[in-house]
Design a protein around this nucleic acid. Structure first.
Length: 561
RNA sequence: UGUCCCAUGGUGUAAUGGUAACACACCGGUUUUUGGUGCCGUUAUUCAAGGUUCGAGUCCUUGUGGGACAACCA
């Protein structure tokens, strides 16, 4: 049998080359290194799927490492949510690591670098240092403190650690090249003084390492082989390598590779802006179902399988990209279509009365739980003389392409009978309050009669008035009305917030089978969309979030006119 | 007037010097007791110019366009 060779993305190609070169027994080791200063979003999900996925695929290891070198922004709350989100996506890390666990080793290496003459203490202010760095197009100039003696540097750095100097008064810098065309090589800062309680090391330290110094060395400590990050760190790579050169002992060193971060249409991904949405109450929190956070998508009803398939489909490359959010939605619908039980919920009810149906009785009808999955079985529904259907499923005078109920025309009530609309009752405003219909008593679904096999154009969902269950529905839609909310120079992303991204309704009536639904349970409300039970839901007051609508070609036809 | 990266249908991703393909979106058809799903089909792609080669989306040169880099953030 011919085995189709799956094409590799450039990271996989690098890994296969590595594995081949290292030979028998070689293992790759990746890491996912979030800073615990916010909630994970769909962009992180891409990185998670990449790093954990690669480890899985090549039988390697993947660490979770919290890059917690800035206590000013980091909190335990974020650590917890990050772990929860990764697990929810279906991944498990081999080691749980914290950069803060390496503070002592990092300090020792810094001391070593001072001894080697490759690091020095600078007493200048941030403004002075920035001034001397100059711009990318002109070389920087050297700090007056650059040539301090090793002894003095050692003494000063130790006293920095001991808390003898105020915050911001001194930094430790790497001594590299102030005239490098790469700004990051112009004597980057390795340590700053910062008196801020750290979420793990409390007040043990008042100096904290900077990202560029800490990251590569942490990779080194953990034995990471492939340090995969996003494109903006590409310019940092020479520095990443430089720091490793200073401390490595032997052949091994991790290798940094960069890929293009995910951008999604109609979405913002910036942590700062997401935080702003939360802080300014444009959304209800990090897990608001309109947020592109993993917790938001979970609450919205998206599934791990859909997100992972999506990550797989979009691929990994170095080109700047904007993925159509419709692709994500496609994968969510695809998964939900397979797994969700079908239920009948009338979102905007109008009553129908079957005038020739016997009064005072009800009967059972049987409904497939999922036509895509026979093993999902059937459930019982109550059929009765008075029922509710969707207000939009009736028109007195219907256009020719309208397949639903109209005066004098027939439709099938799904899993029930064929009915014909005879007359309407209206209130003083002219709004329809009741539709009187006749039903074809021989047409019961599944009864096998000639009448039951009759084909009518329309099939409607319904609930029996006797047992209908009032529920709350939260209709979520895209948060932004613009494809690129933060892509406009003259406009703020907040200008594009969709006023209708959340509409709450208490009108809906559900079939009673829904009464035991628990938070995160997912359903397809037949002919309407996919819904999931919100965490605000209680047995007395069910709350459903609309995950996505069904594709609706009728609505599309209407729109075109 | 620096360094680095990138350039394939509308959006993404493949093609690893040998017939430019797949997914989504779009449009059309078909099936259907969900105007859902499924199935079939249409439209549409190598930034430009040179060069190397029997042969270039792929290699080279130049240009053009886009992006990253000047936090005591990561």
């Amino acid at each position: 049998m011919a085995v189709e060779k799956k094409s590799l993305n450039f990271i996989e190609a690098i890994i296969e080359e590595y594995l081949e070169e290292k030979g028998e027994g070689a293992k790759i080791h990746t890491r996912f290194p979030p800073e615990p200063n916010g909630y994970l979003h769909i962009g992180h999900a891409k990185s998670i799927c990449l790093n954990f996925g690669l480890a899985e695929q090549y039988n390697g290891l993947c660490n979770l490492r919290f890059d917690d070198t800035n206590p000013a922004k980091e909190e335990q709350e974020y650590v917890d949510s990050i772990k929860e989100d990764i697990k929810w996506l279906g991944f498990m890390w081999d080691n749980e690591c914290f950069t803060s666990d390496y503070f002592q080793q990092l300090y020792d290496w810094a001391v070593q670098m001072i001894k080697d003459g490759t690091a020095y203490v600078d007493d200048q202010s941030p403004a002075e240092i920035a001034e001397q760095k100059k711009t990318p197009t002109e070389p920087g100039i050297k700090s007056p403190y650059r040539d301090r003696s090793v002894e003095e540097n050692l003494d000063l750095f130790e006293r920095m650690k001991n808390g003898e100097f105020p915050d911001g008064s001194k930094v430790l810098r790497a001594k590299i090249d102030m005239s490098s065309p790469n700004m990051h090589m112009r004597d980057p800062i390795m340590y700053r003084i910062l008196r801020k309680a750290h979420h793990r090391t409390a007040d043990n330290w008042c100096i904290y390492p900077m990202y560029d110094y800490a990251h590569g060395e942490s990779d080194y400590i953990e034995g990471i082989t492939h340090s995969i990050c996003t494109l903006e760190f590409e310019v940092h790579r020479p520095l990443y390598n430089w720091f490793l050169e200073q401390i490595k002992d032997g052949e091994y060193a991790p290798v940094q590779r960069e890929f293009a971060r995910l951008n999604l249409s109609y979405t913002i991904m910036s942590k700062r802006k997401l935080l702003q949405l939360v802080n300014e109450r444009h959304v209800a929190g990090w897990d608001d179902p309109r947020m592109p956070t993993i917790s938001g998508m979970r609450r919205r009803g998206y599934t791990p399988a859909a997100i992972r398939k999506f990550a797989d489909t979009i691929g990994v490359a170095k080109r700047e990209n904007v993925i159509d959010v419709a692709l994500l939605e496609h994968h969510v619908r695809e998964d939900l279509n397979k797994i969700t039980p079908r239920m009948m919920v009338v979102t905007d009810p109008v009553k129908i009365i079957l005038t020739n149906y016997p009064e005072g009785i009800t009967e059972k009808v049987y409904a497939d739980n999922n036509p895509e999955d026979e093993s999902a079985g059937k459930r019982e529904m109550t059929f009765s003389r008075e029922l509710y259907i969707e207000r939009s499923d009736f028109m007195e005078d219907a256009p020719k392409k309208y397949f639903r109920l109209s005066l004098g025309n027939e439709v099938r009530l799904k899993h029930g009978y064929i009915i014909k609309a005879e007359s309407v009752v209206k209130d003083e405003n002219g709004d329809i309050t009741e539709i009187h219909c006749s039903y074809d008593a021989d047409s019961k679904s599944g009864s096998g009669t000639e009448a039951s096999k009759r084909r009518v154009k329309g099939t409607l969902h319904w609930v029996s008035a006797e047992v209908a269950l009032p529920v709350e529905i939260r209709y979520y839609d895209r948060l932004f009305t613009d494809e690129a909310p933060d892509g406009h120079k003259d406009k703020d992303f907040l200008d594009f917030i969709n006023e209708h991204s959340l509409e709450v309704s208490h009108k809906a009536l559900a079939e009673p089978a829904l009464k035991d639904a628990k938070p995160e349970d997912k359903f397809q409300f037949q002919r309407i969309g996919y819904f999931c039970v919100d965490k605000d839901s209680t047995p007395e007051h069910l709350v459903f979030n609309r995950t996505l609508t069904l594709r609706d070609t009728w609505a599309k036809m209407q729109k075109k006119k």
